Simulated assay, not measured.
Amino acid sequence: MGSEKRYVVLMCGEDTDYVRKKHGGYFGVFVRMLAEEGERWEVYTVARGEFPEEDKLSDYEGFVITGSCNDAYGNDPWIHQLINLIIKLNSINKKLLGICFGHQILGRALGGKVSRSPSGWDIGVRTITFSSSSLLPFSSLKLPSNLSIIECHRDEIRELPSKAEVIAWSEKTGIEMFRYGDHIMGIQGHPEYTKDILLHLIDRLTQRNFIIESFAVETKLKSRMWEPDKEAWQRLCTSFLKGRL
């Protein structure tokens, strides 16, 4: 048991009943994408104030920061606590992978700026483009220059922290991915999502009046026409998190 590599999911939102019943919660979704044999995965719901103990941080190989309904530029106490944790993890060079809100909060914690996107919601399956130079560290994965990913956000990183590099962009979002050193990576989209989770979230956003019915119908139709490149994203995320690049 002593040789087990330990990883943490820092949960920044709450599970819906649907995701809990169908996928074992968002923790289950991430574990299915990232976990491999001989690893131990733990979850801390930071949105409820649950954080790993500071003197235990060095015990973990890497940390994944999830999406959230909250704004990464917000000032909830747990958001400030999470920013402090990111700063600490960066100082000890721990692997950090941020997804959606996680991507944005990494940008903020490292000195960048996050705000509402001027172009509004981005929901559905979107193609993102890698810069040719940014693919070099991932050359062993033989990735194409474009990948499809599920998106569901209305905020974005507007300015990157210094020392960070844009890896990929889309027509709608200028900073779809970034790297900071060899140990931190942010992805605006959701490599972990399945299409049914996306359709479920579109329904939730409609019910809560975040998006209008006609937009929801159109987004669902478009989303059914395209498939995200889940296998490529899984290889990219696991390879980054586990230092295989």
Rank of each mutant, 00 (worst) to 15 (best):
R179E: 13
M177T: 03
D196G: 00
Y180V: 09
T173K: 04
L199H: 10
Y180E: 09
R204W: 07
I197P: 02
K172M: 01
G181N: 14
L201K: 10
G181W: 15
L199R: 02
Y193W: 15
E192K: 05
T194Y: 09
H200N: 09
G189N: 04
E192H: 03
D196I: 02
D203M: 05
Y180P: 07
E176L: 00
I184V: 15
I197G: 01
G186V: 10
D182T: 15
P191S: 06
R179Y: 03
I202Y: 12
E176C: 04
T194V: 03
I202N: 11
G181I: 04
I197A: 01
I197K: 00
E192I: 08
H190P: 04
K172N: 06
I197H: 00
T194E: 13
H190N: 05
T194H: 10
I187Y: 12
G174R: 13
I197R: 04
H190L: 00
H183T: 15
T194Q: 08
G186K: 08
H183C: 13
K195A: 01
K172T: 09
G181R: 15
T206Y: 12
M185A: 07
E176D: 11
I202L: 13
Y193F: 15
P191G: 07
R204P: 00
Y180W: 12
T206Q: 15
I184H: 13
L199Q: 05
P191F: 04
D196E: 05
R204G: 15
I184A: 08
G174N: 14
G181L: 10
D182A: 15
T194L: 04
D203A: 08
L201I: 12
F178Q: 05
F178W: 10
T206G: 11
M177S: 06
Q188W: 00
Q188E: 09
E192A: 05
I175D: 03
T173H: 06
T173Y: 06
I202S: 10
Q188N: 07
